[in-house]
Structure formats: structure tokens, C-alpha cells
Design a protein around this nucleic acid. Sequence first.
RNA 1: GCCCCUGUAGCUCAAUGGAUAGAGCACCGGACUUCUAAUCCGAUGGUUGUGGGUUCGACUCCCGCCAGGGGCGCCA
Length: 599
Amino acid sequence: MLPASNLARVKRQKMFETEQINIALEIQQYCGDQGLPPPIIQWNWIPFSGHWGISTPFFQTAAQEAKAGKKINISQRAQEIAQSVASHFQNRPEFERVEAVNGYLNLYYSTNEFARRVVDEVLSNGVRFGRGEARGKRVMVEFSQPNTHKAFHVGHLRNVILGDAVSSILEFAGFDVVRANYYGDIGLHVIKWLWNYLKFHEGEEPSGDMVQWLGKIYAEADQRYEEDPAVQEEVRALFGRWDRGDPEIVALWEKTRTWSLEAFDRLYQMLGVRFDHVYFESEVEESGKQLVAGLIKQGIARDERPEGAVIVPLDDLAGTKDKFRVLVALRSDGTSLYATKDLSLAIKKFEEFNLDTSIYVIDVRQSLYMQQIFKTLELMGYDWARNCYHLAYEIVNLPGNVTMSSRDGTIVLLEDLLREATSRALEIVQQKNPELPQGVKEDIAKTVAFGAIKYSMLSRDNTKIVTFDWNSALDFNGQAAPYIQYAYVRANSILKKTEKKLSDNLAVSYPLNQAEIELIELISRFPGEVQRAAKEYRPLYLSTLAFELARSFNDFYNQCPVLQAEEPIRSFRIRLTTAAKQTIHNCLEVLGIRAPEIM
RNA sequence: GCCCCUGUAGCUCAAUGGAUAGAGCACCGGACUUCUAAUCCGAUGGUUGUGGGUUCGACUCCCGCCAGGGGCGCCA
């Protein structure tokens, strides 16, 4: 229930929200006048009705009466109250029908009037339809976080796709979003790579796919490192040289790092993902070490060197048991760990960007680690630590619960997946539209293939493991992006054959049929679903809505002739088709999926 | 041992504490002289892991148990 005093603060994030709040207040007023406890109004869509409207139950009101001592049958009493309220709302122009059923009050909108308003709202806002009002809150989303000098596989892809979608959704919902990447450009893995390069690949220049080439050298290095203690010794020595700033090593590091960064730039560009700010581990390493020294002084960290490392005994400090465990903040040899750098980086983010919220898109296996970092920051006295949020997602596995690992060679390279998916899509375009120019066909194939891959990851909840297999990854049928894209193409195909200028926003003067009503209802849900997805960081709500919009449009397409229809039906259906196309576009847009004009 | 996640149709997954738990895939049967069949229509398919509790009402919230996965001092 929204108290009247809060009414002015309610932003119009959903369509018709103001109307709904006003009616809710009126119902509460009415119940109060009748001597009933004020009901909590929770508007739902009316199920099974096939009409457009809102609904709210009165069980709670009845239950409150029962608790107050009245001897009543609750469901019966709820129906009585609903009936009473319904009679109060009888003969109101904004509702076509008002009824009380099973303890619910059902308010059926005047369908044609609301249809007009929904379609008009979409058409007048265009690409901005569904966009929330600016909130004046800044949120940083850190995602992708690749290691340089390593391969990029399908497991990493889920992070990028999720982070990108969440960023877009938040931005569309009204937040000021800073998309941040954080490269692991230094550390043991890089030194191992450099060692292997110097020893076995000296002077080689990258060839073919850069990320793959770098990854191959890394995998090789890792294997030699694991198998041979002498290698470990050499790598440590090399790490020492790097630490001392040996010019030859630093130069090689800089050169190869650049190769890697350029390759990632191309990769993100290909995926249609951009970042507003980029951080590097190398830039927070020194500040991290200093920060840990400070922690020791403050008595937050315990220096157990030389026998042990520098640790933060979180459970002792927080007064918990077996909850936060112990965070290792610095190695016993004084070299930095992830934690060393993450603590420093967290502070840097808030200082540089004046954030309200800081989101970390990182897989679920690092949940404890993330809580340790946030807790440590809190103990350091940073109040904003509670505005740090770990957006955990489950990993991508291979069949048989096999974790993707470069070391074990159990990976599906991004490159391979994209190539395979694109060629499969191209084959289908070839069949459907052989007359199109080759370049156009290739564009469509890419759009479809990338869309399919992104959608398959976004249409599953963050907490669900994705099991990768080629068959389902390359399946373009059913609930998948190509289905949605095809509905968009069909809408476009109708519109191409109409006059450029849309007719005016006239009242709908014919009885809408079922398919039209459902389509309009789904369109009207979009702004609310954007807010819900933003609030819970769940693109799933929008990937589901996109599919439902597409299915509903296909239904409309089959049942409702547009171009052949008589006026004024024809004009309205053209407007509705335009609105559906726009809404599908906006919905896919925030998911990072493009829609082709033809396919 | 402690903590987290998951368990829903044969399979992969949805479902604001609300009315009759829905899609896709697979399987079976239909629909292109039509705004593109990458589509649509129909049929089959359920003790929501299990036992309690809270509630007018539980797939949803709480507790126990079972099963699977993950995490827990110098990896990232």
C-alpha cells in the first residue's frame, strides 16, 4: 500500500501507474467509510479473462476481520467485500466492466481506449519507450575481467553477456551506469607466459587469431610449469626480474600486453560490448601493498611473516564463527594477491566516480572471497562497503559436469563457437533468401548467430548452471533469439509495404480481437519489466518478455490481416505493428541483441 | 564440520505469497495460390525431491531430511 503522502514521490515507471494508485486510494477510502480494515491493494493481471484489466484480492481484509474476533468464513467474506467494492465502482467510464469473482475485484479497462493509449505511448516515445526516469544514482558494473595472455572461452562469454545486459538494463531503467573492465595484466600467469615465450618462442610474432595464439603459448607454459620443478624455479627468477623492473622484461611485458589488449578490443567490438572505464591489476598493485601495510598498522591485518602470510582474521574481528574465515591479503614473500589489489581498486572506484553502488559480475565460486573483501572494507570504516554487490552467476560446464579449464584442454573457444554458429546461420539464410547480396547474408548470419548465443545465456537464471553442448548452442528453433528476430522481420515486412506516414492517433473504433488485446497487454508490460529486471539484476525477465512479445505478434500476424484490412482497422493495425516492432527492438536492445530488418 | 546454490512434464527451463503451475525441445497428427512456413494449429505429458510449520492462500517464506554441484590461509 502506498500512503498518500508518498504519492507525489511515485515516479511513473509503469504504464498507468498513477491511475492504479488513485484507484487503490479510492478503494481504501471506500473501505474505511464502510468500517472495514484498509485493504492492501496489490494489482495483478487478470488471469484467464482474455480481457485487459487489473485485479486485487480481499482475503487479507477478511482475515483481519476474523482476527478481530468476527466469526466468518474468510473466502466468503472476501467475496462479499469484493462485491461491495465492485458495486461502488459500477458505471465508471474508465472501466468497461467491474466484477467480483472468488474474492477478487476485477476491473476491466475500457479496452479500446487503453489500446489507443498504449500504442500511442510507444509510437511517441520510439526508442525511448520503456525508459525509466533518471534517478541521479551512479552505479558501476565491473565485468569481463579477462586475464591478458590467456585464451577466451565460452565460460568467459557468459560473464560478458550478463554484465553487458545488466549494464544496459540499469542504464535504460534510469541509472547513471559506468561500465568497467578490469584486466589481469600481471601476475604469475603473465610471467609464466613470458618465460615460455623467451625460452621456446623468442621473436615469434602473433599469427591468425591473436587470443588463440596467446592462449596456446599460455597453455604450453602452464603445462611445463606444472610438470617440472626446475621450470618453477626459472619462472620465480623471472618474476623477480620483473619485480625489480628489469628493462628487457618490462619491455617484453608491455609489447605482449598490447597484443593482448588489442585482441580483446576487437573481441568486444565484435560482440557489441563497450566499456566506459578500464582498470588494470598493474595499476593497483603498489597501492594495494601500501594499503595492506596500513591494515597491519591499524591492527586489522595480522603479519605472520616470515612463517606465514599477511592475513585479515575476519571472523575474529567481526565476532562471527566460520563465516568470513580468513582473508590472505599478501603472500609471505611480500608479493601481491587478488585481494591486495581488489581492496585498493574498490576504494579507487568510489573515489574516482563518486558511486552509489558498485557491482561485481563474478562467478559464484568467488562468493566467499567477495564477502571477505566487502567485510574488510567495512572494517576499514568505509560506509559504502554495504553498497558493494556481488552479482554471482553460475558457470558454464561441459556435459558430464566438466568444468572448462585451459589447463585440461576442456574448453570451447569463443572463436570456434562464433564461427560455427555463423556458418550455420548463413546456410539457413542461403536457403531462405538466396537472392540477397552475399554481404547482406553474412550480416544477417552474424546477427542471428550472435543473438542466439546471447539469448541462450540470458534466458536462464543467473543461479543456473549452463551445460554447453553444440547441439543446443546451435539450435535456432523454439524459444531462441532467431524466433524473436523473425517476428521483428515479419513486422518490418508488413511495414515496408505501407505508406511512410502513420495515421493519426485516432480512437479505436472497432472491437479488438483476442490476439490484438494480448499483444497490446504484453507491450504495456515492458516498462514495468525493465524496472523489475534492473532491481533484481535479472535480464531473464526481459528475455522472457521478448519471446512472449514475439509469440504474441506471430499470433496477431496469423489471425489479423493488416494490409488487406478495411479502414479504420487497417490504420490501427499498422500502428500496432509499428508499436510491436518498436517494443521488440527496445527489449532486444537492452539485452545486447540486434534485430535484422530482413532474414 | 561450516557456508552457498540447485531439485518443477521424458529433456532444457519459466512462474510478484493469489484464481486452472506454463513454455521450448522431443514424440504424434494437421496447415504454404496468402503481410516471408526461421511460422502456426491440435494432441500427449505434473504427488513442484521429501516431511513438518507459518498463512485465508505456498513452486514461492521458515525448520528438518534426501540427492547433486560449489566454496572454505598464501590460486585467480
